[in-house]
Write a protein that binds this DNA or RNA. Structure first.
Length: 472
RNA sequence: GUGGAUGUAGUUCAGUCGGUUAGAACGUCGGAUUGUGGUUCCGAAAGUCGUGGGUUCGAGCCCCAUCUUCCACCCCA
């Protein structure tokens, strides 16, 4: 039984080089989240399946990973169940748990469960993997990390504005040029009402979401296939053809939707948001995009999606406002808004654009050569000192040939070697080798600290770190 | 879930019409150099040709199934 080991479809191992890059992304995102006063939480990888079902639409239910009950999972079934139940009903009988599909629904569940201990508005961030049983392809994985920020318990559009700022800050730091697309579900609901097809809002939004992909004719024919009347479709056209700048668009919408209460509410929300954004300078492009629909069922207000301008990989960040997500868990009238950064896609974008150049260096600054048992005591003393000074240092674990130890340092791009063999120990000094110049010299133990400050810090020190990591 | 492509040392890829023992580069390891890396030179290890069946005297190559990865759709981060 020694077949080659493998990992499940759509999952990946991350090797050291990849992890350094990934952590760079996580660190930066986390710092911006903290800057705006968000605090971390984590929730379990698995949730009760009933928590997850029905929150993401039919498509979402299909993509949930279900966890087979432990033990005799068939004991809850009788013969009739097995032969007559359709598979989805059957699976919810034998699978009581599932892997989380996103971080928003578990968060809503968390808020309801911990309502007594939470002070509202509650601003939290959460960086964890999620799982979807999707068919994998480029930019689409079955296990991937989401970085969520949400504020729950506040209706203010200031929260939407804050999220836009966060998006802008993060992508500015990561040097990804992006366009932020904004829309509002209430406006979409208003449009559906205006054309007399209120109950078809999902079909309508899904179809117009494809506008820039398949063109206006195909959208119209798709709507017609879905059973929308000719009249409704022709009434929809002015919305599909909306153009001009943001205030033009909002003006037109205002006229067209003057009869619709929800529609007008949505327009006001958009207006408020765009006023906040106003003339503040953002590095991202911002665009009011009526064709932005987003599939997740629970959005009720603003919807936000971010795309890279240089790499075509779908959205790298998305989110919106949900007015009653906690309602399904028994806590009514609490509105929240949040966004989710797709770390894996951000990684793909940055990799493709070679934006990780700054990270080429090693994580270790100094390697202490291992000369053997007798010298190790002396080396460990040096190691401790350097660690106390905050210098990233490692001692080679085996007394391997010097050649081996040096080429290890070389492959890890460690810039400094410290050698303390018999001669050095007798003279109470250390030999230092600079790997890039090849130059080496002996220094006494006393000036070790000075040496660190003058040379290591300058070669590998804080100045070489990306500016945003300097605080660390 | 639907349709299409793909798979050969650790990695990137050759491999002719189906014909003897499947090759290269890079990487790894060893040596030239027992206390000095990168460059150079020499050498070695490394493969059940994704997996399982089938056709054939003979299969990396042809056929079937299956898995992986990739692409389009659906949907999404």
């Amino acid at each position: 039984m020694s077949s080659k080991p493998s990992i499940p479809k759509g999952t990946r191992d991350f090797s050291t080089k990849e992890m350094l890059k990934r952590e760079y992304i996580f660190e930066n995102i986390k710092q911006v989240f903290r800057l705006f006063g968000y605090q971390p939480i984590e929730t379990p990888a698995m949730e009760n399946i009933t928590t997850l079902l029905g929150k993401y639409g039919d498509e979402g239910d299909k993509l949930l990973f279900r966890i087979l009950n432990s033990g005799d999972f068939l004991s809850s079934l009788n013969y009739d169940d097995m032969t007559t139940l359709e598979y989805s009903k059957l699976s919810s009988k034998i699978c009581e748990k599932g892997l989380r599909y996103d971080l928003t629904v578990p968060f809503a569940r968390y808020v309801v469960q911990h309502r007594e201990e939470i002070v509202f508005p509650f601003k939290r961030y959460q960086i964890q993997p999620v799982w979807r049983a999707d068919r994998p392809q480029k930019g689409r994985y079955r296990e991937f990390f989401q970085c969520d920020v949400d504020v729950i318990g506040s209706d203010s559009i200031l929260n939407e504005y804050e999220l836009i700022r966060i998006i802008d800050d993060i992508f500015k730091i990561l040097r990804i040029s992006t366009v932020i697309k904004i829309n509002n579900r209430k406006v979409l609901a208003g449009i559906a009402a205006y054309i007399g097809e209120s109950d078809r809002i999902i079909d309508i939004t899904v179809a117009i979401d494809k506008l820039d992909k398949i063109g206006i004719e195909n959208v119209n024919s798709e709507l017609s296939t879905k059973g929308l009347s000719e009249k409704a479709i022709s009434n929809l056209q002015p919305f599909l053809q909306l153009n001009g700048n943001t205030s033009d668009k909002l003006g037109t919408l205002n006229r067209l939707l003057s009869e619709s209460e929800v529609g007008k509410k949505g327009i006001t929300e958009l207006q408020t948001l765009f006023t906040y954004i106003g003339n503040r300078s953002l590095s991202c492009d911002i665009e009011l995009d009526l064709t932005l629909a987003r599939g997740l069922n629970y959005y009720t207000g603003a919807i936000i999606e971010v795309k890279s301008k240089d790499v075509n990989i779908g959205s790298i960040c998305g989110g919106g406002r949900y007015d009653n997500l906690t309602g399904v868990f028994g806590m009514e009238g609490v509105s929240g808004v949040g966004i989710s950064f797709g770390a894996d896609r951000i990684y793909d974008v940055m990799n493709q654009l070679n934006l990780f150049d700054d990270l080429k260096g090693s994580s270790t600054d100094v390697l202490i050569v291992n000369f053997g048992e007798d010298e190790t005591k002396y080396s460990l003393k040096i190691l401790d000192k350097l660690h106390e000074m905050g210098v990233k240092t490692e001692l080679f674990p085996d007394p391997a040939k010097l050649k081996k130890q040096l080429s290890y340092a070389d492959s890890k791009k460690i810039p400094f070697i410290l050698m303390a063999g018999e001669n050095e120990i007798n003279n109470n000094c250390i030999k230092v080798k600079n790997m890039s110049s090849g130059e080496q010299k002996e220094i006494s133990m006393k000036v070790l600290k000075k040496f660190v400050e003058n040379e290591i810090r300058q070669t590998k020190g804080i100045d070489s770190l990306p500016p945003n990591l300097k605080i660390l």
